[in-house]
Design a binder for these strands. Structure first.
Length: 503
RNA sequence: GCCCCCAUCGUCUAGAGGACUAGGAUGUCAGCCUUUCAAGCUGAAGACAGGGGUUCGAAUCCCCUUGGGGGCGCCA
């Protein structure tokens, strides 16, 4: 049996959480839960320049919406609090001092301008671009002079001059780097804040993280982290660099803009926008887990518990994947259809209220909506699509933009008028206004008049809803009721009459 | 430019030397059902990037090429 793992997700509030980051969080969470360990949320806010005020709230509510929970974190506390890096500054400063004392790091007095000049020169000479370690070799006297000048300094890692650094990646196997490819990276900035490299190592160690699960863009800085663990004399955690998610079409990784579907629609890229688009959290969870990982060779739809049971880091496909947009809507539709009617009703109300401008309370007690609900359920892929299937319930009258829309196929306008008259006359005489009766009667009418059922139902559909595609007609008739139905039919009849008179 | 990662249907994936006539899903197309639109059911087309090895045998292992992704900041 696998040992309980402590994993973490460590977003930075410099922007919102995009769907690729959410997938990484999901994997980390799944692994913690699979092993019966803990999942920790930590905020890496060491970049004071790029801080986005509402990012943290949106990240947290997005993760919760997805169904992730954490055992330790800024909002829930824990034995390693605080979980916000800007509140842990002394730890990093202490760590940096320790490294300097033990010869693993040094103060660098170069100014940003000097570094820019250095790079420009390197580029001009077509040399390798990177810090030339000039401050690493300062004599004690030179160093004292810089200090006396009161120059600002940063702390840099003294990377070994030769040798290899390697680590075992759970997803990719052994990854090796030549230290000559590495930079003497800044560990502590001039403002006293740590960079990612220092903070992540210090915190992951302090928080007893056993598996560092993060996006593959971190692979190239992983050797730096390994060097730091070694300098501190700490045991290495396991690493797992998850494959990135690429744009659905074209190339490159996910950008900040929405994802375009082949049909010209769009899918949001930021996690917090998914609810607004009408996606169900359990569907998004299922969908996301299936990018780069699969339950087995055939199962597509599975719940969280099943995913937890089967999840394994080693089963993650290391290849970058394009975001399979088309699959998301399909899967969301499956989840919608699997909802009980009560649940669907409950979840749909906020969307309908927003999209139709009808108060939620009114929708909640509207029996007409409940009649149509089963039919709406099998027609929508996203909750936002529901309104278009029931909007005619919430209008005073149906406006027919084109009177000819009342005319069924293979029928002339002249022939349609008497059909409408017959429909109206027939419906007026119906006493029991239910689906079965209406169906029987209207089918009879069609037979009597030598028409196809569709030819009778099409004008009714148009008259009642003003649409060509609707849920089945009999439930609509019942929902609308006899009076309203007949009203709309008469109005439609008159519209057609007027059209014919004019022609 | 240098370094690192990666490579199976259009797309997401299964596959860890023989069970592969390469499986599933999505999307596409066709048929059925049908009251429009859906849903559902049935079927079809559709992939091991290329070239060298290793081996009795390679989608699976190795090398090269090509292609894609990432990194090279006092950003994470």
């Amino acid at each position: 049996m696998t040992q309980p793992a402590r994993t973490r997700f460590a977003p930075s509030p410099t922007g919102y959480l995009h769907i690729g980051g959410a997938r990484t969080a999901l994997f980390a969470w799944l692994y913690a839960r699979h092993t019966g360990g803990q999942f920790i949320l930590r905020i890496e806010d060491t970049d004071r320049k790029r801080y986005v005020p509402d990012a943290l709230d949106k990240i947290i509510s997005g993760l919760r919406w997805l169904g992730l929970d954490w055992d330790e974190g800024p909002d829930v506390g824990g034995p390693h609090a605080p979980y916000i890096q800007s509140q842990r500054l002394p730890m990093y400063q202490e760590a940096a001092d320790w490294l300097i004392e033990h010869g693993h790091a040094y103060r660098c007095y170069c100014t940003p301008e000097e570094l820019a000049d250095m790079r420009a020169e390197q580029q001009a000479k077509k040399q390798k671009v990177g810090y030339d370690r000039r401050c690493r070799w300062l004599t004690p006297e030179e160093r004292a002079a810089k200090e006396a000048e009161g120059r600002a300094w940063v702390v840099r890692l003294a990377v070994p001059l030769e040798g290899e650094v390697a680590f075992e990646d759970e997803i990719r196997g052994r990854v090796t780097f030549d230290v000559r490819e590495l930079q003497d990276a800044v560990l502590l900035k001039a403002d006293g804040y740590p960079t990612y490299h220092l903070a992540v190592v210090v915190d992951d160690h302090d928080m007893e993280i056993t598996h560092v699960i993060r996006g593959e863009e971190w692979i190239s800085s992983a050797p730096l982290h390994v060097l730091l663990y070694q300098a501190f004399g700490w045991d290495l955690p396991a690493f797992a660099h998850t494959p990135s998610i690429l744009k659905p079409s074209g190339k490159g990784k996910l950008s900040k803009r929405d994802l375009k579907t082949p049909e010209g629609g769009s899918v949001p890229i930021m996690l917090h926008e998914y609810p607004d688009y009408g996606y169900l959290p359990e569907a998004v969870f299922n969908f996301l887990s299936g990018i780069g990982w699969s339950l087995d060779d055939r199962t597509e739809i599975y719940d969280r518990e099943t995913a937890i049971k089967h999840f394994d880091l080693k089963a993650i496909n290391p290849a970058p994947a394009r975001f399979p947009v088309e699959k998301l809507d399909w899967m969301n539709g499956v989840y919608i259809r699997n909802l009980s009617l009560e649940e669907l009703h409950r979840r749909l109300i906020p969307y309908l209220s927003r999209d139709l401008g009808v108060p939620e309370e009114e929708l909640a007690r509207d029996e007409r909506l409940k009649i149509l609900l089963p039919h709406v359920q099998e027609r929508i892929k996203r909750l936002t699509e529901a309104a278009q299937w029931v909007d005619y319930l919430y209008v005073d009258e149906v406006r027919l933009d084109d009177p000819l829309s009342l005319v069924p196929r293979k029928t002339t306008p002249q022939e349609t008028l008497p059909i409408l008259d017959a429909i109206i006359e027939t419906l007026e005489s119906v006493d029991v206004w239910d689906e079965e009766t209406l169906e029987t009667i209207l089918r009879e009418l069609a037979t009597t008049r030598g028409l196809k059922v569709g030819q009778v139902l099409a004008p009714i559909r148009q008259a009642l809803t003003g649409k060509k595609a609707t849920p089945p007609l009999f439930p609509i008739l019942v929902a609308l009721g006899k009076e309203t139905s007949l009203e709309r039919l008469r109005s439609a009849r008159n519209t057609l009459q007027a059209y014919l008179d004019e022609a």
